[in-house]
Design a binder for these strands. Structure first.
Lengths: 236, 236
DNA sequence: TATGTTGTCAAGTACTTACTTGAATAAACC
DNA sequence: GGTTTATTCAAGTAAGTACTTGACAACATA
């Protein structure tokens, strides 16, 4: 008890959790899985890597306990193994934004200039939803919407938004949201709507943060096909 | 905006924060620095590594922004760069304890069998302190006590405890605490006191968690030399 | 039973990491 | 001004990591 070797082994094990998150590609995977479970080929597509390489990253995450998997026919779906994993990823992002010298440059290079886009916090959005003067728009890919979204939100993936603007009611502000603070989808959506004269704002963070805050969420197809919509008790 | 290369660079940067925590030795360093600032040679001693190697780990932590340093004469003191870093380390430990299969074995190998030792949560300890029927004992090395401890705690480093048991008042339970849930000092102290018939319990976690919870802390020498004791507004 | 789809495994390569050793600084002490 | 103390730096080595390619396994469908 209390000897060097045992302490090193223990701390190596504790650190192994940080280690698996310490690769940009695996961080992207966790960022995607925080939206809900996904099969390997879709994850590979999302992170821009080969299926073989993605599979190996997923095996690593699996062995370290950060994700679980289930088989459904020929597909294997991966998901985060608990809410703590999404919290850990949020803690990493927080420290990065507080202490990483060049982060804002890198964020600007990926996200573009956000200064012209106004944002709402979670509580501001909740208040305006309760007031009824806003429509909430989920611009993530559809599978992510189906596995969980803000209650009452409408799904139009950002790629389809330009052709589906007529689906949006007129005369009401649109509040778009996506995966989180480092996701471009909502930014792009707000820019597109502004170009067409639609008043639009962006939710400051994304769906995982909304869910983690205990705010109302639902699964299935939501308004579009209410028969599939179900109140959700917990995700992740 | 929104292209692959920029996204990879951004997520590599975010993940770099996790990466520096992803080494057992650097995790031990963060665990020590969560107690307060320390010079290089003491940190090297704590983690059982050469000074050169420890210095290189510290340079890495420094470049990644997780720690800051200051020079005082010939010594260079390192400290965590903000409270978010200790929170991140806590999040890592939480995920590890929830999802790492062999963690309890490794913890048992280092900490020994804890089942015979009773523990108090932070709030339980606070209540008993307010009731006055407990004395709080800080068993960490003295420099850590000096840079911040639970208000009213007495310092007897675990190495000196056996010879200084007479410094403890009789007829009152001793609540020992140390660095955190994976620290052996308080366990050892409680065992020592039990062997001498002193009623003793262990605080469930450690000083950083107490401080992070906003509970009362102070710096300096505390009761021992009240002239040096000062109410503390913030640490880390 | 054959065929296609989805994912994993094994082997190889270029690159990175953790440590060691010994030399180089930087401030303090005499 | 030379010596001591505390730390960093540079170079070297062994081991580990991230990706690629091609073969293999598991299930579904015809």
């Amino acid at each position: 008890m209390g000897d060097r070797k045992a302490k090193d082994d223990l701390f190596d094990a504790l650190a192994s959790v940080a280690k698996v998150l310490g690769s940009g590609r695996r961080a992207e995977i966790v960022d995607v899985l925080a939206q809900g479970e996904r099969p390997v080929d879709e994850i590979a597509q999302e992170i821009g890597q080969s299926i073989a390489n993605t599979s190996q990253h997923l095996q690593l995450l699996l062995r370290s306990g950060l994700v679980h998997s289930r088989r459904d026919g020929t597909r294997i779906y991966y998901r985060l193994s608990g809410p703590g994993v999404a919290q850990l990823w949020a803690a990493v992002r927080l420290v990065a934004s507080d202490h990483l010298a060049n982060l804002s440059d890198l964020a600007a290079a990926y996200l573009g200039d956000r200064s012209a886009l106004s944002t709402l916090t979670r509580t501001e959005l909740k208040d305006r939803m309760d007031g009824g003067d806003v429509i909430v728009l989920d611009v993530r890919p559809e599978p992510e919407f189906r596995s969980g979204h803000i209650s009452g939100a409408v799904s139009i993936p950002v790629k389809e938004l330009a052709e589906r603007l007529q689906d949006l009611p007129e005369g009401v502000t649109v509040a778009a949201y996506c995966r989180g603070p480092y996701c471009v989808f909502a930014d792009e959506a707000v820019r597109t709507m502004h170009r067409h004269g639609i008043p639009a704002v962006r939710l400051e963070d994304g769906y995982p943060e909304w869910e983690a805050a205990g705010l109302p969420v639902e699964t299935g197809n939501g308004r579009g096909s209410p028969q599939n919509s179900t109140e959700k008790t917990s995700n992740v």
